[in-house]
Nucleic acid binder design. Sequence first.
DNA 1: CTCTTGATCTTCT
DNA 2: GAAGATCAAGAGC
Length: 203
Amino acid sequence: MAQKTKLAADATAPAPGKLLKPAFFARSVHAVAPDLIGATLLINGVGGLIVEVEAYHHTDPAAHSFRGLTPRNRVMFGPPGFAYVYRSYGIHWCVNFVCEEEGSAAAVLIRALQPTHGLAAMRRRRHVDDERALCSGPGKLTEALGITDAQNGRRLDAPPFALFARTENVEIASGVRIGITKATELPWRYGWKGSRYLSKPFP
DNA sequence: CTCTTGATCTTCT
DNA sequence: GAAGATCAAGAGC
């Protein structure tokens, strides 16, 4: 029977822009982070528009790299353009993009996506139907995209990853980071102002 | 809507 | 032994 479809988000997914190469990440993490808002992140064809990120740097007490190299954070200390995946609260995975240069130990935590590609796969993995609940948090989006430590240390410009520059004008908001207990005053959370897909709205 | 709590594992003290 | 870059469910308003 004729029924209104909810597949429009897949059908109308915006044409991705230019493929982001390591040079894009070889800049200050505070320059890269806002430039990632509106970029398209895909893993095996599943993903969406990045709408929220946070910046971390080895000089920042809230960063995993603050106390030096460990087995967990070793990818953060490597070259830019790679994925750093870590276990959060023993349950979730979170994904970062390494920035700056080797030894800089700077990375951008990907916190929320606006789903555009592969929503059926996301719903299957997340066991929820609401589009706004699929990728509106760092642990949610890794579950929706199937990211685990199997992707830790993988380069971002080759399969299974695909990352494309934004193609539209985006109004960027910034504010304090979420869920941390150190350096809570630093305004290093960046997002797509007014997006319905944020983990939390900007004030 | 807000607040509280349990789940569960890695790292560091 | 405690804390942590989280999430979902349940209670209360």
